[in-house]
Design a protein around this nucleic acid. Structure first.
Lengths: 239, 239
DNA sequence: AACTAAAGTGAACGCCGTTTATTGATGAAC
DNA sequence: GTTCATCAATAAACGGCGTTCACTTTAGTT
């Protein structure tokens, strides 16, 4: 079991400390401050030493992305578990609100996950980061599927779906390994997710300031309009 | 009229050349390549010379933002004018599609406008850039208002709007100087705009790849679902 | 105790934004 | 038409960055 030599353990600890330090700097001073030299300085090391742990600055940041993803996903999971077990409306609100809350409370980390990809604008985050992203995606997907399975809601018939969209939806359904779902469910799921994340991204990046000081009520409105389309009641509440 | 001295003219021309050069670099090599030294190098100058024209790198970028905004706005205007004059459905599709088309064709410029604000994540773009942003916002706003005025569509009654949202909507309505509009219209306008820009941002920044290679059909689906809520027909077409 | 592989250092390279002192050009006033 | 002030542009330098390389220190293994 514990085949970990002492060397391996201290090495792992150092890697963890590096990522932790990077996160602190990210949160407190912004993404452009996350430099190898700053991290090393903070840890009482020199920058080249970090190359024993990460091949480049970019690779370090990719690990950072994975770490942040896990944090966000943990938050959403916790919110889901804290919600009244049977109440799907509350669960949906809990997960969505926690996503938004976390994003606003960790703008810079959020920007790292869902902002403009830094290098070529095309490259997917690799490996570690990608895994974190998948886990996060699975969380919301599972919630939608639970929603649908427990209490199927009205979804667009196949003929109401833009023809060119049908095949991509089928392929995504295969990828999800859920062949029993109508593609109308897929289109609802994706539509809702895009609305949710689209809204939160605009809010976090300040692109709703043109209309709102505080976008919270508009978010509630969005939820109030979206939830009925998922067969959920929305408690018209503004705590 | 032409009070411009020769000095002023050549100065203005140089400023234009700087912005132009910056845009070329932005488009071809990405935002991180837009450095004072690179711009100067390209123009056969040295970096400090640019300080005669812009107070800092950031100020130069703000002007760049304004320039890019104007480009985008011009594109949307052109698309609107090219649409069949009377057909509001076509106009709406033209403007929305042009917005998306331009964004995808100018990802890096788009990222500059609607990505993560670079410095503190809070600061609004100042002056020149802000004016560009306003002009752009006015374009879509005017389109929505024309829509509503020519053919009023169903909007949520005041009681269907989340209470905490009503006052902010009234204030935004005042700011727009359109006191005759029901706040239900405001909520529709903002909701549609947020959906549109949210979608395009996610697509441009690659955050829809998790489900789609090509998000175009999903965009069409979005339009197909959104337009009826604005009293518009959607031609179920996928050219 | 001796050896070896890993961890860490310091100096250097070429980038960056920015400041300062200095030179070159040009339009305006006499 | 010459003088002079003003603006444009430069070279050199500072500190910061990612990264490389030759080097030393540390620590586990034999």
């Amino acid at each position: 079991m514990a085949k970990t030599t002492r060397r391996e353990r201290v090495r792992a600890a150092t890697m963890r400390e590096i990522i932790q330090t990077a996160r602190r700097i990210l949160a407190e001073e912004g993404p452009e401050a996350v430099t190898l030299r700053a991290i090393a300085r903070e840890m009482g090391m020199t920058a080249p030493a970090l190359y024993r742990y990460f091949g480049s600055h970019e690779e370090l940041v990719r690990h950072l992305v994975g770490d942040v993803f896990n944090d966000l996903t943990d938050g959403v999971h916790a919110a889901l578990e804290a919600a009244p077990p049977g109440d799907m409306s509350e669960k949906f609100i809990a997960a969505s609100s926690e996503f938004r809350r976390w994003a606003l409370a960790h703008k810079r980390e959020y920007a790292l996950l869902f902002g403009v990809p830094v290098p070529g604008l095309e490259v997917e985050h690799g490996d570690f980061a990608q895994e974190g992203g998948r886990r996060f995606a699975r969380t919301f997907l599972a919630l939608f599927l639970e929603l649908w399975r427990k209490k199927p809601f009205d979804v667009p018939a196949d003929e109401e779906i833009v023809p060119a969209l049908r095949e991509p939806l089928q392929r995504y359904r295969e990828y999800l390994d859920a062949p029993e779902l109508p593609i109308g469910v897929m289109v609802r799921f994706l539509g809702c997710w895009i609305q949710l994340q689209g809204f939160v991204s605009l809010e976090v990046f300040g692109h709703l300031h043109f209309a709102f000081d505080d976008a919270r009520p508009m978010f509630d409105q969005l939820m109030a309009e979206m939830m009925p389309s998922l067969g959920l009641d929305h408690p018209f509440r503004t705590p």
